[in-house]
Design a protein around this nucleic acid. Sequence first.
DNA 1: GCCGTTTTCGGCCCGACTGTTTTCAGTCG
Length: 570
Amino acid sequence: MDKKQIIKQLDMIAVYLEIKGENTFKVAAYHRAGRALENDPRSMKEIDDLSKLKGIGKSTAQVIEELLVHGQSSVLDALEKEIPRGLIDLLRLPGLGGKKIGRLYRELDVIDRDSLRKVCEQGKVRLLSGFGEKTEKHILQALSEQQRPAELAVPYMLELAEKIMCILRQIKSIKRFSYAGSLRRTKEKMKDLDFVIETEQSEQTSEDLLTSLPVNEVVGRGEAKMTVLLDDPAHVSVDFRFAEKKTYASMLLHFTGSQAHNVLLRRLAKTRHEKISEYGIERSDGSVLTFDSETAIYNYFGLTYIPPQVREGKQEIEWAQEGALPFIKCSDIKGDLHMHSTWSDGSHTIMEMASAMRAKGYAYACLTDHSRSLRVANGLSFERLDEQISEVARINKQFDDFTLFSGTEMDILPDGALDYPDEMLKKLDFVIASVHSSFSQDRRHIMKRLENACRNPHVRLIAHPTGRLLGKRRGYDVDVEQLIELAKETGTVLELNASRSRLDLSAKWLDKVQKAGVKIAINTDSHSLQMIEDMHLGVETAIRAGIRPENVINTWPINRIRDFLLQKKR
DNA sequence: GCCGTTTTCGGCCCGACTGTTTTCAGTCG
């Protein structure tokens, strides 16, 4: 049994114990044992003494040992025999937790959704002490509603968040605001949206929000927060937390999370006989400190600033105790090496794109329109590419503080051939190769195509290496580890495509890319002026993977990039 | 169930909101 499976079994034990009404700390202990395994970088084989891990003691170590040796756990087996499986599903219903489900099971013989619906319809639930008519009604409602997808992808959620932010900017009682939660941590998927809002009149603000937002249902509303379900197709849940000026930073820190990170911070506070909450830091004498920024809060604890993307409750506190985290920042980016113009499928002219890149403060950018075979994108013929090279040279003359490179995003054709011959490619400053067709080929064919591209002396970068579209399609069957090896061997750069719909490669792979010593380029693949702004999503994804700026070629100054492009590949 | 530079026993992260209750438990994040 591998680590993932073992963690799942530990979490299952915790869930069963929760329904059994066990001590919540015992329940948490099983979850914590799972997290301890998850956060340890070693494989199960490499971990010799389980109980040495913090969070794993005698009992949980025994359960894990048993799972490793026999593939099953007597503790879990006993729980499965004792407690009906259908109850697990009920935990997903909002408002129902282990305690209530346990009582429904013991007192009304509820074992699954159907039996729960029956006792609700019979009016039996409202008779239990601690339950009432409203609870019964809410359960019935939850049962009848279709299960929403557990998590939605970042492109959908970010667009929704942007619409909400437009509305927040119009509301007069709002002094400032920020999105928080998973979106601020740049997770690829998330369950809901969180906003922290500074206001002196929270009552008025929530009133204004309700009149201007497309709201389907108000889930909860109080002085300090409001939760609504939006009227979008997915009925996304949005939390608004209201803060005063002096608590804003603490509120933002708290609601950016993650939960696991907050737990680490609270434990750290506790060792200093202090208490941290969304309202500030309470010292041992009872006085409460507030802060102007998240940085000030971290510094108070002797930590350097921790970017949201690494606040996952792993080793980030220890790293920040040792000194500044050496990860890339948005301000490190000096250029964007992948963009399109009206010459292929972009919406803006070469001049418009170049000017926008320059206005963003970049020292350089590279125009990479599509190649001839990509007809749907109006790919450039040999003649048009020649023309474009001249046009780029002309435009380039108009800048003295900005360089526009001439490039291409060339298709790797289904048979593995490249879309332009070498004589064409050598005229260009920068050649990107990517897969845009025959996604359903098997792994062997896909890898052969990528290998051909890597081995071409002119191809400097493989764009969006897996071809995935977040929330839409999985991408093609690529062996990323083998691709990293190929990139290393041939001196090819791998892209982190910063477009919100891609974020490809993902943080998980980027970590391996950096460890292999392969260089990365973070590019927006912009097809419009607006898309240029997605660069921060790429940088944030890189931060999640712990990428250092020196390993990202578009952090390099113009001279170094120019040298790099002039040099032959390895 | 886990843990110990306050502790081998008695804690375990903190607060908002709802629905049930007349002071609080359960759920959620």
